[in-house]
Design a protein around this nucleic acid. Structure first.
Lengths: 144, 144
DNA sequence: CTGATAGTTGATACTTACTATCAATAACTT
DNA sequence: AAGTTATTGATAGTAAGTATCAACTATCAG
């Protein structure tokens, strides 16, 4: 069974544990991302939360990414997208038509990275992997 | 033996084949990226080529990426980096300290993608993968 | 509960990495 | 050589943030 995470109180607790203050604005941003499922932009959140300043939204998203409860990914052209993170260690598939994001766990990439450890000179400190797809509903409703 | 590509005349020929005009500016941009080896930014090139307009540099880099002779990658924070592409199908390791870029071919990722085809609903249309490292010289000269 | 203290906020201005516009220019075509 | 059409570059604009800093407020110590 796959472990899921990221219920709102947990996120708040994680921020507390990191020695950060629990402000109304941070609660609002956390609540806003909990409500979302696919990908979204920082401006989406900033627009939705009229009462929270843009700078605070960006700062909070950055905190949440660092706290590992939010993923920052990118479309093929580099446009950034955020997506709530619910699986422990995972990667993403992003539909290039509608922006739907799915998480998937994988072990193949982990195996791959272990084998790279032998090939690459230097120390591996991280990686990024995104798979771009056309999701079923976009395939279905497409003209081509 | 691994096939290498991207000698200057080839790139120019590729642009011609695509029905594009060979202008002095495009030659200059191609020459500039040929001279480089690690990662660089569009502004690096624009700064180096005083005689070529910024817009043209950006446009040409985009063409070269589409022509598959240049890769656009990103640092962990999303900052874009360009790197000349010399291997047929490859991924990159990027040193997060000095920005050095290495290309490596891989088959594991390809295998991984094939297995994903069975797991993922929808059609895989692309992927992005970057491995972030600390290269040997940065490890050597580091305080930590 | 009451300050004190130090982390947070938000308005604003700035930065980076581009993209759109459009008149002027230069490559290919014949 | 002339015409056609892609390309260029100056400029202005956009997207996604980040820096600044005075005002604010969570949290702690008493």
């Amino acid at each position: 069974m796959i472990s899921t995470r990221t219920s709102q109180p947990d996120v708040i607790a994680a921020l507390e544990d990191a020695g950060l203050r629990i402000t109304g604005q941070r609660r609002q941003v956390v609540a806003a991302i909990e409500r979302r499922d696919g990908g979204f932009s920082a401006e989406d959140i900033a627009g939705e939360l009229e009462g929270v300043g843009r700078a605070t939204v960006y700062r909070t998203l950055k905190l949440l990414v660092k706290a590992d409860v939010l993923c920052k990914l990118a479309l093929p052209d580099g446009t950034p997208m955020y997506s709530p993170s619910r699986l422990e260690h995972h990667h993403h598939s992003v539909c290039t038509s509608c922006g739907a994001v799915e998480e998937f766990r994988d072990t193949t990439v982990e195996r791959f990275l272990r084998s790279l450890t032998r090939e690459i000179e230097g120390e591996i400190v991280g990686h990024r992997m995104e798979v771009f797809i056309r999701c079923l509903s976009c395939l279905g409703s497409s003209s081509s």
